[in-house]
């Protein structure tokens, strides 16, 4: 890619937005899973109900 071309800033912004939104969705999906699965493991560990 030729960075001296006009509108490089628009291209970088477009890819930047894509990274930020995709990355944000991935992070939040992973964080929610960690939270929920952690709570589930604690519940089963302490409650002794087994699974």
């Amino acid at each position: 890619m030729n960075f001296d071309a006009p509108y490089t800033i628009y291209i970088l912004a477009a890819y930047g937005i894509g990274f930020v939104l995709l990355g944000g969705a991935s992070l939040s999906a992973w964080r929610d899973w960690r939270r929920v699965s952690g709570a589930w493991a604690r519940l089963n560990g302490r409650g002794g109900r087994g699974s």
Binding site: M1, N2, A5, T8, I11, A14, Y15, G18
Partner: peptide, 28 residues
């Protein structure tokens, strides 16, 4: 896709380098 879209693929005859935005825009 990033390597091909940003580095390997050619610029467009009308749009120049700006065509590369398509590789994010259209799949989305």
């Amino acid at each position: 896709g990033l390597v091909d879209g940003l580095a390997l693929s050619p610029p467009d005859y009308q749009q120049g380098e700006t065509v590369r935005i398509m590789y994010m825009h259209v799949p989305a």
